[in-house]
């Protein structure tokens, strides 16, 4: 377990020292969301209706920008090979990197989303559910995205490839995440959607670190 926390600490520190990389993702999130009113018009009712969808889609696209640096630097400088041959199980190493990624990308996205919610005139009663759904959803996105990043490590044009691999797989997150917020706005309880998101998170916690480990071993060969 020591190795796990050491790795989380190391990756978080590296991300914080290259703060501009993390900020870039957030800035993209804000700019992309701010483009929608220009595209569809500033009418408050329309924006309020579209706000949950816009928030989730732009958060997803912003997260896509962050995955190429998840394993790439370690792969380039040889750290990855050391991690692969280390005594710690590789799935745990992968999970540590995923946790660090969530702390430095998912969490900032989570913090930024209410601000964008205000800009898009999101229904005030739905912020609690939005944050809860976002917390679960960004964790799933980190897990699935890490799998995509590990699979496409060392390939040509890995950035575009990554989106092609990951985006279809996270469609359920988008559906239930936006659905939870929509449900609250419509006056229903969002329990079902949140429970399904939680279930998806559990399933991803089982599948993705394992898949990452297999893919990383493949990449380090």
């Amino acid at each position: 377990m020591n190795g796990f926390f050491a790795l989380v600490g190391r990756d978080t520190r590296i991300a914080l020292r290259q703060l501009s990389d993390t900020m870039m993702v957030i800035v993209f999130f804000v700019i992309a969301a701010a483009l929608f009113p220009f595209g569809v018009g500033p009418e408050p009712n329309l924006l309020a209706r579209m706000a949950p969808g816009i928030l989730w889609v732009t958060a997803l696209l912003a997260a896509m920008l962050s995955f190429d640096r998840l394993f790439q630097n370690d792969y380039d400088d040889g750290t990855l090979e050391l991690l692969v041959i280390a005594p710690q199980p590789l799935w745990m190493t992968a999970l540590a990197k995923i946790v660090a990624h969530w702390l430095t990308t998912g969490l900032p996205l989570l913090v930024a989303s209410p601000v964008i919610g205000i800009m898009l005139i999101l229904e005030p009663s739905s912020y609690g559910v939005l944050m809860l759904a976002m917390a679960l959803g960004t964790a799933i996105i980190s897990l699935v995205g890490a799998l995509g990043a590990a699979l496409s490590l060392g390939s040509r044009r890995s950035g575009v490839l990554l989106s092609l691999l990951v985006l279809p797989l996270v469609i359920p997150v988008l559906i239930f995440g936006a659905g939870a917020v929509d449900a609250v706005i419509g006056g229903f309880a969002a329990t079902q959607q949140l429970l399904i998101l939680g279930g998806l998170l559990m399933a991803c916690l089982v599948v993705c670190p394992w898949g990452c480990a297999v893919a990383l071993r493949l990449a380090a060969e």
Binding site: R157, L164, P168
Partner: peptide, 27 residues
């Protein structure tokens, strides 16, 4: 499309076929 793109994305064909096999299982 993702499966085909991943299988063809590597200079080393063996790498591509294994990576895409993992993707197929996850998919």
């Amino acid at each position: 499309l993702g499966f085909i793109a991943l299988a063809n994305a590597f200079d080393d064909a063996a790498r591509g076929e294994k990576a895409s096999a993992i993707l197929a299982l996850v998919g």
